[in-house]
Amino acid sequence: MNIKRFYAVFKARNIEFFRDRSSLGWNLIFPVLLLIGFSVIFSGDGRPAYKVGIINSVTEGKAQAESAQDSFKNIRFIDYINYDTVELANKKLSHHTIDLVIDVSTSQYWINNESSKSYLVEKIFNLPLKDYTRLETVGKKIRYIDWVLPGILGMNMMFSCLFGVGYVIVRYRKNAVLKRLKATPLSAFEFVSAQLVSRLFIVLFISTVVYTGCNFLFDFLMLGSYFDLIVIGMLGAFCLISLGLLVASRSKSEELIGGLLNLTSWPMMMLSGVWFSLEGAPSALKTVADFLPLTHLVAGARQIITEGATLGDISYHITSLLVMSAIFLSLGAYFFSWNTER
Rank of each mutant, 00 (worst) to 15 (best):
F77M: 13
S325Q: 06
F18V: 01
F30A: 01
P48A: 00
E114A: 08
V101F: 13
F238E: 01
S225I: 10
G258V: 04
A284Y: 12
E87Y: 03
V203C: 05
Y109E: 04
L127K: 10
S116R: 11
R173T: 04
V148A: 13
Q195H: 06
T59K: 10
R76S: 15
F72S: 08
V168N: 01
M234Y: 13
E136V: 08
V138M: 14
M222R: 08
L329T: 05
G151C: 13
I327R: 09
S337I: 14
L285E: 01
R171N: 02
V203R: 00
F18H: 00
A248Q: 01
Y316M: 08
I29A: 09
G258M: 01
A68M: 05
I41S: 11
L261I: 10
L285D: 07
F335L: 14
I98A: 07
T208A: 01
W266D: 09
L88P: 06
V298G: 06
I36H: 02
M157A: 10
I257R: 13
N90R: 09
F276L: 08
G25I: 00
L294A: 10
E341W: 13
N113G: 14
I304M: 10
M1I: 07
E60M: 10
S251M: 12
M269R: 03
Y80F: 15
L221F: 06
K130C: 06
Q195M: 10
N156K: 00
G61E: 08
F42C: 10
I304A: 09
A68V: 07
K91H: 12
V298A: 05
D313Q: 05
W266V: 15
G213I: 08
F276M: 03
A12G: 04
P48K: 02
L28I: 00
F216I: 15
F17G: 00
L245I: 07
P282M: 14
P282D: 07
V231T: 06
S249T: 06
N82V: 15
I3M: 11
N339L: 03
Y119D: 11
D20K: 02
D45N: 07
S325K: 07
R171F: 02
E60V: 11
I304W: 07
Y119T: 13
S22I: 13
A284W: 12
Y144Q: 12
L245T: 11
N175H: 02
I29R: 04
K117A: 04
K141H: 12
A65I: 03
G280S: 10
T184K: 10
V247T: 06
A248H: 14
I78N: 15
F17K: 00
N2E: 13
V170N: 02
F72Y: 11
T85C: 01
H96R: 12
F218M: 03
E255A: 04
G164D: 04
C214P: 04
G224K: 11
F216G: 07
V298I: 15
S67E: 11
P48V: 08
T319I: 13
L322R: 12
V52Q: 13
N82G: 05
V86S: 09
S277V: 13
G280I: 14
G151L: 01
K174V: 01
V32P: 01
T184R: 04
R143Y: 06
S265A: 09
N113K: 14
K62S: 01
L322T: 15
G332R: 14
V86H: 03
T306P: 01
T137C: 09
N126R: 14
P293W: 00
L200M: 05
F163G: 07
